[in-house]
Design a protein around this nucleic acid. Sequence first.
DNA 1: CTGTTAGCGCCTTCAA
DNA 2: TTGAAGGCGCTAACAG
Lengths: 371, 371
Amino acid sequence: MAASTLTEVARLAGVSPATASRVLNGSARKPGKDIAERVRQAAESLGYIPNAQAQGLAKSSSGLIGLIVHDIADPYFAAIARGVQEAAREQRKMVLLATTGGGPAEEKEAVAAFAARRADSIVIAGSRSSRDEDKDGNSELAAELDRYCRNGGQVAVVGHPVVGATAPEGYHVVKVPNQELAGRLATELAGSWDGDFVIVGGPEGLLTSDDRVRGFQEGLERAGRRPAEVLRSAFNRSGGYDAGLELAARIKAARTNAGPSGEGGGAPKLCIFAVNDVMAIGAAAALRSEGLRIPRDAAIAGFDDIETLRDFRPALSTVRLPLEDIGRVATRATQRRLAGDDGDDGDGADDASPGDITGEVTLRRSTEAAA
Amino acid sequence: MAASTLTEVARLAGVSPATASRVLNGSARKPGKDIAERVRQAAESLGYIPNAQAQGLAKSSSGLIGLIVHDIADPYFAAIARGVQEAAREQRKMVLLATTGGGPAEEKEAVAAFAARRADSIVIAGSRSSRDEDKDGNSELAAELDRYCRNGGQVAVVGHPVVGATAPEGYHVVKVPNQELAGRLATELAGSWDGDFVIVGGPEGLLTSDDRVRGFQEGLERAGRRPAEVLRSAFNRSGGYDAGLELAARIKAARTNAGPSGEGGGAPKLCIFAVNDVMAIGAAAALRSEGLRIPRDAAIAGFDDIETLRDFRPALSTVRLPLEDIGRVATRATQRRLAGDDGDDGDGADDASPGDITGEVTLRRSTEAAA
DNA sequence: CTGTTAGCGCCTTCAA
DNA sequence: TTGAAGGCGCTAACAG
C-alpha cells in the first residue's frame, strides 16, 4: 500500500489534479476559497504527502543541499555541519551528507552522487590537498565540479579552491584567514614568551595546515624571532600525540644537559604551536604522559577553538574560528543570486562575501609564561 | 544547459533508451558486449549522470536514509551519525540529515519531509520524552511514523520506542541498556567510595536520563547504600554547570560546618553522577571555578564516554557506549529483511538484534578515592 | 537480446 | 478560475 497521490486527492475532492496541485503546493495562482478547502480536507483525510522526487523531476530542482566533510564525528566538521544545517533550514531545504575521509577521489564520488540527486548546491568542507599523490584525484574532482556547475549547480568550498577548478559560474570560495590569524597568534605569543617555538603541522601539502604554518612563521619574523622548526605528522589527535612524544623527549634531554651549565635555571622553554586544537590536545596528552606539565615545562597553542575542548585544562590558547558561521556563509553563498545583485567581477569564481569570516586570537592558560 | 539524459546517450550510441538503461544501471539482463561498450563510451563522452530522482520515481525507492538528531554538533550525535553514515555507505545509500533540537513537533516535520522524499528508512536518535508538554507532539510523531511504516518505510529508533507508536511492521527499536549500565556503575563506585552520592539528571521525563537515574539508584541499593538525591537541570553542559555550582556551595558549606565537629578530617565526600559526559564536564568546571578539586573534594562520573572528552583531566569515570555501533546497528535494522529470516515474534515492533548493544563501566581518575 | 509501450507523480503550458 | 494534455528521465513490462 503505497502513499496516496495527488491524483487520488483530486479525485476525492472532485477536482482536477492540476487544481489540487495549485492549492496544495505554492502556485502563483490562487484557486477559489471553497474549492481550496475541499482539496485540503481531502489531502488531510488521505494523509497525502507530496512526492518530492516527482516534484523535483517536474521542476528539475530538488531542494537538496549536499555537504561533503572528511568525518562528521570530527567536532570541527560537526560544527560546520550545524551551520550548514541551519542555513538549509532557512532555505527550506534538506541536507544530504557525505563523508569522504578526505580523499579527492571519494569527494569526486560524492559530488557525482549529489549531481545525480540534482542537489541544488554543494558545500565542501575540509582541507584541500596539493600533494602529488592527490594530483589526479584533484583534477577529477575539479572536472566533476565543473560539470556540476555548468549544469547549473552551485558550489561553495570552505578554505581553498579545489586545485584546478575553473568553473565559470556558481563556484564560490569561502576564504578563511588562516594565515593571517596564525600570524597574529605568533606575534601575540612572542610578546609573552621568551623561549623558542616549534610548530606541529599536518602533512605538507594540506593547504589549511600549510597556511597556518606559513602565517605563524611570518608572525614570528615580524616579532623579530627566529623561525620555528616544523614537525610534520597526521592532522589529528594521534598525529599531535606522536609529535608530542618526540618533543617531550627533546625537552627532557635539553633539561638534563642544561642542568649543569644552565644560565639561570634551565634550558629556554619551548612553545608548541599545533595547527589545530585536536592535535594540540594530543600533543598535550603526550607531554603529560611523559611527566611534563603545561605551561610549566612547555607552552602549547592550537587553532580552531573547538567547543568541546574548552573545558580542557590547562585552558588551551588557540584561535577562535566561527565554524558555525562558516557553514552558514558557505551555504548562503550557494543560494542563487537574485536579479539586481551587484555582481561578479567578471572572471568567474567569485568569493562569498569576502571578509565575512574572521577569527580571534584567544590566549589562555596553556601559554602563560609564569613559572 | 541541463545535464544530459539517458535518451541522449542512447541516441548517440544508436540504441534504444531501454538498452542504454540496461547497460548503464545494473539490470538482471546483460546486453551484448559490443553494444554495451558503445553505450558506455557515449555516456562517458556526454558526461552522463543518471537522474536519481527519475530513477526513484520509476522504481519507487530513493536510496536515501533519513537521520534525525537533536543537534549534529553534539559529539554524542555526531558519533552516532558516523555509524549511520558508514552503514549507509555499505548499503550504497545516502543519508539525509535533519536536526530538530529535540522537540517531537520538529521530529514529526522531519519524518514528513523524509517521507516526501521517499526515504527508504529513517533512523531517529536522541532521547524520547514522556513529559506532558510533549504529549501532543509525541502522538503526532507516532502517527506520522505509523503512516510512514504503513507505506512501506522502515524506522529505527535509538533508545526507546516513540511514545504511542504502534506500527505493525518496519518499526525497530535499538535498545540501549542505560539502566543496567548505570546500575553497574553505581555498584562499582560504591565499592571504592565511602561518601554519599548525588545524581545530576536531565529534566524529568527525558527517558534516557530517567533510565540512568533509576539504574544508578538500583545499583546503590544493591550495594547497600542509601538512595542518592537527584538534582534536575538541562541535559547539556550548561545544565551540568548549574548543578555543579549548587553542589559546590553545599560542599563548601558542609566543610566549614564539619570543620570543628568533624570526625577524622571533614564531611564525608560526595560522589556526583551526571547522567551524561557533557553534563559531568559542566559540573566539573563549576566545581573548579569554585575552587574545588576533583577527586580531592568530590568525585564525579559521567556517561557515554565521548571521545573528544577522553583527554579531560582528571580523566572522567564513565560508561563507554559504542555510539558508532549504535548508529550502524540502527541503520542495518532498517534494511528490509530478506526471505528466510527467522522472524518476527508476531506482535509487530521488533527489536533490532537485541543484546547487540552493550557498554562498559570505565573507572578513571575522577572517582579515585585517594585523598 | 533488443526495441516499443506505458507509466512512476507531479507541474505547466495551453484551451476552455 | 479550472481542466486537459504533455513532458520531466527513467524503468519495467511486454513484443519482436
